[in-house]
């Protein structure tokens, strides 16, 4: 399935679950079904067969661009998802996330410790992208070393 279709499925899911409220939202979904979901804008999304999506939705005000002194919505976060077949495996879903939103994100962005933490987390993610063999446990150990 192409990227825009994944995004559409995710947005539909998010709208269905959250009512498209203007709030930060993270969603995951796995379907093997005939599913009919109604979005907040009254469009109906229909899917048949297998589908899967992970999505982050960050609210933005209408007709307003971010500027030097006005951000759309400040978010700093790390997002780990381990996803397996939720109906047959003993380890179906693990989520480990840390977010700083709004004023907290702006404060964290100016904090050397948080900047180090998020910078190191980004490095771990990049390492995983280049070499996908490290396990989550190894990643956690790296982050614990950072604390020391």
């Amino acid at each position: 399935m192409r990227g825009w279709q994944h995004a559409a499925v995710g947005v539909a899911l998010c709208c269905a679950l959250a009512g498209c409220a203007k709030t930060l939202a993270f969603t995951t979904a796995t379907k093997f079904a005939l599913d009919v979901s109604q979005q907040a804008d009254k469009n109906v999304d229909v899917s048949l067969g297998y589908d899967r999506a992970e999505l982050a939705v960050i609210p933005a005000p209408d007709n307003t661009d971010a500027g030097d002194h006005a951000d759309t919505y400040s978010v700093l976060g790390t997002f780990f998802v381990h996803y397996d077949n939720p109906f047959v495996t003993s380890d179906p879903l693990r989520l480990n996330q840390f977010f700083a939103t709004g004023a907290a994100a702006r404060t964290a962005a100016q904090s050397p410790r948080f900047r180090t933490y998020f910078g190191h987390s980004a490095g771990v993610i990049e390492d995983n992208r280049a070499n996908p063999t490290p396990t989550f446990t190894e990643d956690l150990n790296k982050l614990k070393e950072l604390k020391k």
Partner: peptide, 8 residues
């Protein structure tokens, strides 16, 4: 069918 969904 089978549907599993999560929202945070």
């Amino acid at each position: 069918g089978a549907v599993s969904a999560t929202i945070l």
